[in-house]
């Protein structure tokens, strides 16, 4: 099968930029809607994590699958998740992928290779490994990718999955977004190892640390891991070092993080950094950038309008679809 090259072409680079910008715009808007009391539920934003969210996901090909968490809506965008679907889900409308059954980012569509995950972490590490087991049994050249944060690496499932995936040599790539905090708990209270990726040696698989704010690096290391997995090389653990520059959820001002740290990481904004990269290569003028932002703003505006004007599900649908036929 034809897979994307490690070196992305101009069109692909602009795709990556689009997804990062789109993710940021959707989240900014969600934040405003949440603060304005427009949403029935909570929001969990990955602002500041756009490089790893898009970079690793973009390394997948059609037919591959991705398993994300509550904070990884942006990683579903390259799989084809639309802004209308995102806002409909948050608004609890019938037009959402879960028809109002699921909250915030627990949405998916198997046809597009994105799994609808759950709140318990990292439950979709084993689920993604199970997808890759199906690919292996059927001898399909498909790859599964699982995301979680460093907080979820304290859970037994995480270790069980890396171990089994290694023993079974499964075509799966494990992404850990180390964003500094599990809700309010800093990394030094979560683990004593310097890097989550150091744990890979315990499972006999490669463990790689990437700059989680450098989308090119995120893409390239993920791509290598994805294609190694596809060719029978087994799983890889990739740890992306970054920072969650907003609170755990919409209600959380994250006062437990020093302002200086937030300021420092805000200056490392992965989108600004990528814009500089693109501009240096003559791919992004001020005009192209503004056109992109305008296009995205229109998409987001359309999506909000769409969600707000979409009907709610009928109450009686609460008891439907508990079982498959």
């Amino acid at each position: 099968m034809q897979v994307k090259s490690i070196e992305l072409g101009a069109k692909e680079l602009m795709d990556v930029y689009y997804y990062m910008r789109l993710g940021r715009a959707i989240e900014d808007r969600l934040n405003l809607l949440y603060k304005g009391g427009k949403l029935p539920g909570a929001i969990y934003l990955g602002t500041g994590q756009e490089a790893i969210e898009v970079g690793a996901s973009y390394a997948l090909e059609p037919g591959d699958v991705i398993a994300t968490t509550h904070r990884d809506m942006i990683a579903q965008l390259p799989r084809g998740l639309t802004p209308r679907e995102v806002f409909s889900q948050h608004y609890g409308r019938i037009t959402s992928l879960t028809r109002g059954k699921g909250e915030d980012n627990y949405q998916g569509d198997l046809k597009r290779g994105m799994l609808a995950s759950v709140s318990m972490l990292p439950n979709f590490y084993p689920v993604a490994a199970g997808c890759s087991l199906a690919f292996k049994i059927r001898k399909e050249k498909r790859v599964a990718m699982a995301y979680c944060g460093e907080g979820a690496t304290s859970v037994g499932d995480w270790h069980e999955t890396l171990n089994i995936a290694s023993v079974q040599n499964l075509p799966v790539v494990f992404i850990v977004i180390n964003n500094g905090y599990a809700y309010s708990t800093p990394v030094f209270k979560e683990m004593k190892v310097a890097n989550v990726a150091d744990r890979a040696c315990a499972y006999g698989i490669p463990g790689i640390v990437v700059d989680g704010n450098n989308v090119i690096e995120c893409y390239q290391e993920a791509k290598k891991a994805v294609e190694r997995a596809r060719e029978g090389g087994g799983p890889t653990l990739i740890e992306a070092k970054t920072m969650r520059i907003r609170g755990h959820a919409g209600h959380d001002p994250a006062t437990y993080v020093a302002k200086e740290i937030i300021d420092l990481w805000t200056k490392r904004d992965p989108i600004v950094r990528f814009e500089n990269y693109l501009a240096e290569r003559g791919l992004l003028s001020e005009e192209t950038k503004q056109n992109m932002i305008n296009r995205i703003n229109n998409e987001v505006e359309d999506a909000v309008q769409f969600a707000e004007s979409s009907p709610y599900p009928d109450g009686k649908e609460a008891i439907e679809d508990v079982y498959a036929a």
Binding site: A128, A129, G130, C131, G156, T161, N163, I164, V167
Partner: peptide, 21 residues
Amino acid sequence: IDMPIAEEGFIGMAVGAALMG
């Protein structure tokens, strides 16, 4: 498939495999 002692892990894997058909 013989599994290591990791019930949460391989039950979760069964869910993934089932979703893949």
